[in-house]
């Protein structure tokens, strides 16, 4: 334990640092003080990329994102295609003067919001999986 040779007794800086305190000079920096560049050198990217946890994360993301992209692209481009090539059907009235064309265009907004909401829910799971991958790297990295 270093001796307290500070002249100013008003200085409230604790002598022994907890993990959250300012890092002592010279020693390794605590994780929260490392810059992005310093962190890069500490990680074995190849090993992480090949790890089961990371591959599971990629698989889970792909399982959501690829079908979601395909669905929204098909649903969206159906609008101009149907307007262009199936106009009588699109002009069928549903509620009073309101026709399929208007309702289908309006439904695009709700489609986008629903997919966004589903993605946010799925992404909470991806975040947990990503945290698992990161903790794995921190276990391996020198402190």
């Amino acid at each position: 334990m270093p001796s307290d040779d500070r002249k100013n007794s008003q200085d409230a800086t604790p002598i022994v640092g907890a993990a959250t305190d300012i890092a002592p000079l010279g020693g390794p920096k605590p994780a929260h003080e490392r810059t992005a560049d310093e962190e890069a050198g500490l990680v074995d990217w190849e090993k992480l990329a090949a790890s089961d946890r990371f591959r599971d994360l990629l698989k889970a993301k792909r399982r959501f994102i690829v079908p979601a992209m395909i669905f929204f692209i098909v649903y969206y481009f159906a609008l101009p295609v149907l307007i262009g090539y199936a106009r009588p059907f699109m002009e069928t009235r549903v509620f009073g003067p309101v026709n399929i064309a208007y309702l289908f265009a309006l439904s695009q907004f709700f489609m986008a919001w629903v997919i966004a909401a589903l993605y946010v829910r799925a992404a909470a799971r991806f975040d947990k999986m990503a945290a698992g991958v990161v903790s794995q790297s921190e276990d391996a990295a020198p402190r």
């Binding site: 990217w45 990329a49 990371f54 990629l58 990503a130």
Partner: peptide, 15 residues
């Protein structure tokens, strides 16, 4: 490998 891990986990992202 590095880009993929960074992009998908946020490891080493700018703070």
């Amino acid at each position: 490998a590095e880009l993929s891990v960074r992009a998908n986990t946020g490891l080493g992202a700018e703070k």
